[in-house]
């Protein structure tokens, strides 16, 4: 089914999503790639505060393209990066920040799948390479963090999205994993 989701999404709502559902999201999400994941966890383990609060925000595996002018930031490219790079950090991130769902591409490993099930969270696949459509779905930039330290793609961006999608639920809170199914079939057929 097709769902139009207004964030924040409640855990009960996310738990009801099923693999194969098509989702359009509106509201605040946080972008983080592997480098940002490592920095978040390093700070958290040392007990240091973060310059932003990831609690309850969906995490978007994305390194945006942005232009800065007098009026502030304009996102000119927004889309998913390969999620598998975030596998090592994701179970701990999900547990610490009660992340309701992830957005990325290519799917994730079994440790992440188990962590998603444990938290009642989900993984949504965005269409890779659709940066122009993604940019048009950005309503505003709430903040950008660690830009000087790690550069534009690896910085953490908190973005307001409007009807961003289509996203497909590919790992649901019940543990169904479309990526794993397709990979098994492709291996059998090759």
């Amino acid at each position: 089914m097709t769902r139009h989701v207004l964030l924040p999404a409640s855990p009960a709502e996310v738990s009801a999503w099923r693999a194969g559902d098509v989702v359009f999201v509106s509201g605040a999400v946080l972008t983080a790639r592997d480098l940002a994941h490592r920095r978040i966890l390093a700070a958290a383990r040392r007990g240091e505060p973060l310059p932003f609060d990831p609690t309850g925000l969906p995490i978007f595996h994305c390194g945006p393209l942005a232009r800065r002018d007098a009026g502030g930031w304009t996102i000119t490219g927004l889309g998913p990066t390969t999620s598998a790079r975030m596998d090592p950090s994701t179970p701990e991130i999900l547990a610490r920040y009660r992340t309701p769902f992830l957005i990325g591409k290519g799917g994730m490993g079994d440790s992440t799948r188990r962590a998603l099930v444990e938290q009642g969270a989900a993984y949504l696949a965005a269409v890779g390479g659709t940066g122009a459509l993604g940019a048009r779905a950005v309503r505003g930039v709430r903040g950008v963090y660690w830009l000087e330290e790690v550069g534009m793609p690896d910085a953490v961006w908190i973005l307001d999205l409007c009807e961003y999608g289509p996203l497909v639920v590919t790992i649901d809170a019940a543990g169904h994993d479309l990526h794993a199914e397709i990979a098994r079939r492709a291996a059998r057929l090759s």
């Binding site: 390194g63 269409v127 390479g129 940066g131 459509l133 793609p153």
Partner: peptide, 22 residues
């Protein structure tokens, strides 16, 4: 997905936006 890729290509060309953020 194919329709989304084609729509993205159209928007990118018409608005002069990069096809992909990467």
């Amino acid at each position: 997905h194919l329709e989304t890729l084609l729509e993205n290509a159209r928007v990118a060309r018409e608005e002069g936006l990069p096809i992909c953020q990467d």
